[in-house]
Design a protein around this nucleic acid. Structure first.
Lengths: 350, 350
DNA sequence: ACGATTGCTGCAATCGACTGCATGATCGAC
DNA sequence: GTCGATCATGCAGTCGATTGCAGCAATCGT
């Protein structure tokens, strides 16, 4: 067990073991420079490295090359079931490429976001995958100006071009509306996400387009904007909808959390789903099939979204001049028991 | 904007700006060595560092000090809702201490676990927080021998002493059984977790103890071991229970996922919960209150478990000689609608 | 008033890997 | 048999921060 004073074998240990200079060992071990070394010598060095269990010290390497081999993942809250699969998708791509992800949670707090990104940058991350909510974002703009390689997931940037991977929101909403229309609903409500997020806006617009395309009642009173992507906000949204005077027999929630908020109001007001009201979610988070009733939703490929984002980022790092590309991923309708034909003579639901 | 050729200001830039040597600047900036420097000089250096936006390069620092400021988090699957809150609890403690967590997923695969831990070690993590399932684990033993600072979450190590933070499993199970007994159940079944995990064993033993303590029917046929902590395994477990000839009116699942598996079987066989069968889960994962029916469960303080684990690890890093301390965290019973008194003349459920 | 202590700062080596440049060896060509 | 080309390897400096040691000045004690 030849090893340096610190226990782990160093490049010099390997070089010594192979009877060559550290420089030669370095070249032999690096596939890109291996050609510079005699094939036989290279083989020998590699064998010694192998038996010694040599691991290049990423700090020493990073110090010299100014590369850390890490990527910062900026997400609002890991506890939101949306993100873990996305993270796994990201790591699935990053790992084989020799990168690791550093996760930070911002809780959608602007200040916290800033300090967390600072933290990441001080850790020398080579790029950022950003999943935060806000669409108009001075910090993002600043990072973009500073040429920090960056990709957005699930959100589109506003003014400047940054690569992004997003689900096909418009198609998803259309799927939901068509499904409800097919069941016979004509007055469908929408609980929109915050307008401060691109997703909220896109889905709301897609909703009205779908309603119009199908010739359903296009009543502006049937769209209520939730101020957050949360159960609470969803509950509040449905309450104002119910307390309004517009009739509706179905609601398309801008995401599953908002739909879950609806469930709270339903039991609170003793409204039956799907008998009195059909509900459709969006995102396809886990365990939706165990709800009472199981929630019909638009499933999106979380893992793929992450994987694509990671690929885009690696591309951007490899070639910073490449223009921003964005990926739109297909979504699917998952029909469960929260949707059904409207009752014969459904009036205003209250 | 004075800065080095790479854009980010270096220690020498600061030193130059303050008219001192880099060594002095280093000492002035490090709180531990600041006393060695003239107070006025230190102030000046710090001000220059501030205005320059100086960030010490963690790689250079790490190279010299052989510390990376990172901790490895070894978890089975981030997608399992159990872990995200634990991770947040961990980071909540790690961050103020200047550490970052590097997350890897093992999918409970022994080989993958090994390569992932190798990855972490090659990234020079200063310690490991391990949440993997297996109780007899050559890799863990090896790490322990190699003196890698390490803490386990939610599991107790088998042969050797490693600090750990676990929920009070025994108390939780007792709470569940008492709750059911209080409702009038006398024949209570247990869907145990894998015996390869300490948690599985502990909860199963606690179950039998609780049943005996309360003078309920202690029938060995009423305990079935699930071979994994998953919905599938839970479903399978309940099926064998139902297909057996022992009567029971309630079931304590070793965790929520197993309880969710029960829900599948209930609808599959048209058994009503809680009318025909009461079900109690364990862990208190999110959205359980939205299920049909909302699941009664034992809530455990996920975030606290993580935070305590991180604290233990920081202690272990600071003083490796300190003996292993373990923390037991209190759990609470959350009563919802999956439990009710048994029907008057409940026979065998089938 | 002189040697000794204390306080502050600079010098230079170090951590481990990378890399431009130079040197040495080998071989072919004329 | 010598010269130049090619190939392989070694040398030494570099990345940025840290730290033992030395040096210098101011202060103290007697």
């Amino acid at each position: 067990m030849a090893a340096g004073p610190h226990g782990t074998p160093t490049l010099r240990d390997v070089a010594e073991g192979a009877g060559v200079h550290a420089a030669t060992a370095s070249r032999a071990l690096n596939p890109a420079t291996r050609g510079l070394v005699n094939a036989e010598t290279a083989r020998r060095v590699m064998k010694v490295a192998e038996t010694l269990g040599y691991r290049p010290n990423p700090m020493a390497r990073g110090l010299k090359t100014a590369k850390s081999g890490t990527i910062g993942l900026v997400i609002p809250d890991l506890t939101n079931p949306f993100f873990p699969p996305v993270v796994r998708g990201i790591e699935e791509v990053l790992e084989p490429a020799g990168y690791s992800g550093l996760i930070v949670n911002t809780d959608n707090d602007l200040l916290r976001e800033r300090t967390q990104v600072d933290l990441l940058r001080s850790r020398q991350v080579e790029g950022l995958i950003v999943a935060t909510a806000l669409v108009d974002h001075p910090l993002l703009e600043q990072l973009h100006r500073e040429r920090v390689p960056m990709v957005m997931v699930n959100r589109r940037p506003h003014g400047f071009d940054v690569p992004s991977t997003v689900p096909d929101d418009a198609a998803g909403v259309a799927l939901a509306v068509e499904h409800l229309a097919g069941l016979g609903h004509t007055r469908i409500a929408h609980l929109a996400g915050p307008t401060t997020t691109s997703t909220g806006g896109v889905r709301a617009r897609a909703f009205r387009n779908a309603v119009r395309d199908l010739g359903l009642d296009d009543d502006p009173r049937l769209t209520v904007v939730c101020h957050r992507w949360s159960e609470d906000a969803g509950a509040e949204g449905l309450r104002t909808l119910l307390d309004g005077d517009a009739e509706f027999t179905a609601v398309v929630a801008a995401n599953d959390l908002i739909a879950l908020g609806c469930y709270d109001v339903l039991s609170e007001r003793d409204i039956s789903c799907p008998d009195d009201l059909s509900v459709v979610g969006f995102n396809g988070m886990p365990f939706l099939d165990k709800l009472g009733p199981p929630l019909t939703t638009i499933a999106i490929p979380h893992q793929q979204i992450g994987a694509e984002a990671a690929r885009l980022l690696l591309d951007a790092i490899a070639d910073p001049t490449r223009s921003a590309r964005s990926v739109l991923l297909p979504v699917t309708l998952v029909v469960r028991e929260s949707t059904a034909p409207p009752r014969r003579c459904a009036g205003a639901v209250r």
